[in-house]
């Protein structure tokens, strides 16, 4: 499944070049060159960050990467490439149905802060928030949403029609919850506060919230 040596993706911070294994760096360069060529001048003027799944990159390797990007009018953000833990193969094998979805399980954005009112996060993949999603904020993504805190804003999981997507939160008190094409909102009047973690998913033709037990 890691057939791709590297990928270029955009997220809210800009472009991210993910390199699976630095040991095959020359192959990575060739692949990247081919990908950039096929994208033509689409990325021109953009600044890209490097994300590394395995191994490390030396300054010379960063140099050659920078040179390659410069050919396509791009710049390299030379902050030390972050090492990202690869998703365990076992997990991926155990849940093969994930592969049939439109996104890969490892395509997950980790947000290490609270998303506040007026802030909006769009992402192609899953989103994990280490903080709260406050009222007036929204998280919209094509995969699952996990909030390790309180979800009080608007969450839209499976935004491209993925009916298997779920929304999980330690305290699930959203203003509005959307999964795929369905919309749910909190009942009017006094609402009892959830006692613990809850998860929302589509059951039949409605969004159902249940206490989370793994």
């Amino acid at each position: 499944m890691h057939s791709e040596l590297c990928s270029i993706k955009g997220n809210r911070d800009g472009l991210v070049i993910t390199i699976m294994d630095s040991a095959r760096f020359s192959e990575v360069l060739t692949t990247l060159d081919r990908q950039l060529k096929s994208a033509q001048s689409f990325f021109a003027g953009a600044s890209a960050k490097v994300m590394l799944k395995q191994g490390e990159l030396g300054p010379e390797q960063l140099d050659s990467l920078e040179q390659l990007l410069a050919v396509y009018g791009m710049t390299l953000d030379r902050e030390p490439p972050r090492l990202q833990q690869p998703v365990s193969e076992k997990l991926a094998v155990e849940r093969p149905e994930r592969q049939e979805r439109g996104y890969e399980p490892e395509n997950t954005l980790l947000v290490r802060r609270t998303i506040r009112s007026g802030q909006s996060l769009h992402y192609d993949g899953n989103v994990v928030v280490l903080g709260d999603v406050n009222p007036g904020a929204e998280v919209i993504c094509t995969g699952d949403i996990l909030v390790l805190g309180s979800l009080r804003g608007v969450a839209h999981a499976g935004a491209e029609g993925e009916v298997d997507a779920t929304v999980f939160a330690f305290r699930l008190e959203p203003t509005q919850l959307r999964i795929a094409h369905l919309i749910a909102r909190a009942p009017d009047g006094k609402v009892t506060k959830p006692a613990g973690p809850e998860v929302a998913r589509i059951v039949g033709n409605t969004i159902e919230v249940s206490i989370y037990n793994h």
Binding site: R116, S117, G118, Q119, N134, P135, G136
Partner: peptide, 11 residues
């Protein structure tokens, strides 16, 4: 709600 918005903007 507005304070929350402002805190986000300040950050």
């Amino acid at each position: 709600r507005d304070a929350d918005r402002i805190i986000g903007l300040l950050e």
